[in-house]
Computed example of a mutant assay.
Amino acid sequence: MINKIRTLVVDDEALARRGLIVRLQDFPQVELLDECQSARQALEKIIELKPDLVFLDIQMPGMNGFELLREVQARGAPLPLVIFVTAYDNYAIKAFDVRAIDYLLKPVDHERIARSLKRIENSLAQREQNTQQQRILNLLADATGEDCEAILKRLASGEDIGMARYPEHIAIKESGEITRVAINSIEWVDAAGDYMCIHACNETHILRRTMKELEEELNPKRFQRIHRSAIVNLEHVEKLCSRQNGEYHLVLKNGKELKVSRSYKDRIKKLILTS
């Protein structure tokens, strides 16, 4: 069930506006936000009120209906759904070229408005469904570490989407003791032969496990490989620096510098810019 259709009426003729508004009062799903007597006035109202729907006249002095929609886009504002209402039928093809939902000829009767509003309700319902699906995809992406496109491909192929749960702590056995290290506190990890050094809170812990095994336990949204033998926690990264020789280094918040290999450089740059 969608909310009321927040609506704006735009027409330079006062009688035409009033006639349409009177007819719209017969439809309880319509919430009239305002009426505008010019495209310039409508431009400001569309940006301010962000209506779901605009009943829009085409021929108006100063700026016509098509020019109004182009100006809304140029301002970076979201385009509302549009039903053109005009006395001329020669604009119909152009109206649908700008993805108008409907094209009504004056004078408009009750039945024709009803059919148009049904289309609007269907369009808004589809938009809401798409929005909900995107929210779910984003949640899945956060939980699994995969991007939305990869998740969609897996769903299309019938695969199950596993909700990966990454541990909050890692148990490290050292000198007969087991230390629980908080995952969030890990700043970086580097390999040394057949074991790894876990650097966290100014301490270094020795973990006898392969880099690949550890990488599978770490959330890829947070931990990224920067070298064949190094993983970094992006939340502990202060900046990415380039050197004159073309090398890149990550500088952590504790001042530690870590070299980024060429094969991981572009991915790390992108993650740093978007995180």
Results as ranks from 00 to 15, higher is better:
residue 183 I to E: 09
residue 134 Q to S: 12
residue 85 V to W: 05
residue 203 E to P: 00
residue 254 N to S: 15
residue 38 S to E: 09
residue 93 I to K: 02
residue 106 K to N: 06
residue 246 G to Y: 07
residue 101 I to G: 06
residue 146 E to C: 09
residue 230 A to H: 05
residue 58 I to D: 05
residue 96 F to N: 04
residue 84 F to D: 04
residue 58 I to C: 09
residue 132 Q to I: 10
residue 29 Q to W: 01
residue 143 A to M: 14
residue 128 E to S: 08
residue 32 L to P: 02
residue 126 Q to L: 15
residue 155 L to C: 01
residue 215 E to P: 06
residue 176 G to T: 01
residue 121 E to N: 05
residue 83 I to K: 13
residue 122 N to Y: 07
residue 265 K to T: 14
residue 86 T to Q: 07
residue 5 I to M: 11
residue 234 L to A: 08
residue 218 L to E: 03
residue 173 K to Q: 13
residue 170 I to P: 04
residue 89 D to V: 03
residue 61 P to R: 11
residue 53 L to W: 09
residue 93 I to H: 01
residue 186 I to K: 08
residue 192 A to E: 14
residue 215 E to W: 06
residue 232 V to T: 12
residue 46 I to L: 07
residue 132 Q to W: 04
residue 240 L to E: 05
residue 265 K to I: 03
residue 88 Y to R: 08
residue 198 I to H: 09
residue 167 P to S: 10
residue 98 V to C: 05
residue 140 L to G: 01
residue 11 D to P: 04
residue 266 D to F: 02
residue 161 I to W: 03
residue 204 T to F: 01
residue 268 I to M: 13
residue 181 V to Q: 02
residue 25 Q to I: 00
residue 27 F to K: 00
residue 157 S to D: 15
residue 119 R to I: 03
residue 93 I to E: 03
residue 156 A to P: 00
residue 114 A to K: 00
residue 64 N to K: 12
residue 203 E to G: 06
residue 48 E to H: 12
residue 247 E to N: 08
residue 14 A to I: 13
residue 215 E to Y: 06
residue 9 V to L: 15
residue 255 G to T: 07
residue 178 I to R: 11
residue 66 F to V: 09
residue 194 D to C: 04
residue 50 K to I: 09
residue 33 L to D: 00
residue 178 I to W: 04
residue 183 I to A: 03
residue 53 L to I: 09
residue 41 Q to M: 11
residue 121 E to C: 05
residue 132 Q to G: 00
residue 94 K to S: 13
residue 201 C to F: 03
residue 138 N to G: 08
residue 99 R to W: 09
residue 265 K to C: 07
residue 248 Y to R: 12
residue 220 P to Q: 10
residue 193 G to R: 11
residue 141 A to F: 03
residue 122 N to C: 06
residue 144 T to H: 07
residue 91 Y to W: 03
residue 163 M to Y: 13
residue 50 K to Y: 03
residue 157 S to P: 02
residue 266 D to Y: 00
residue 95 A to F: 10
residue 133 Q to E: 15
residue 134 Q to K: 13
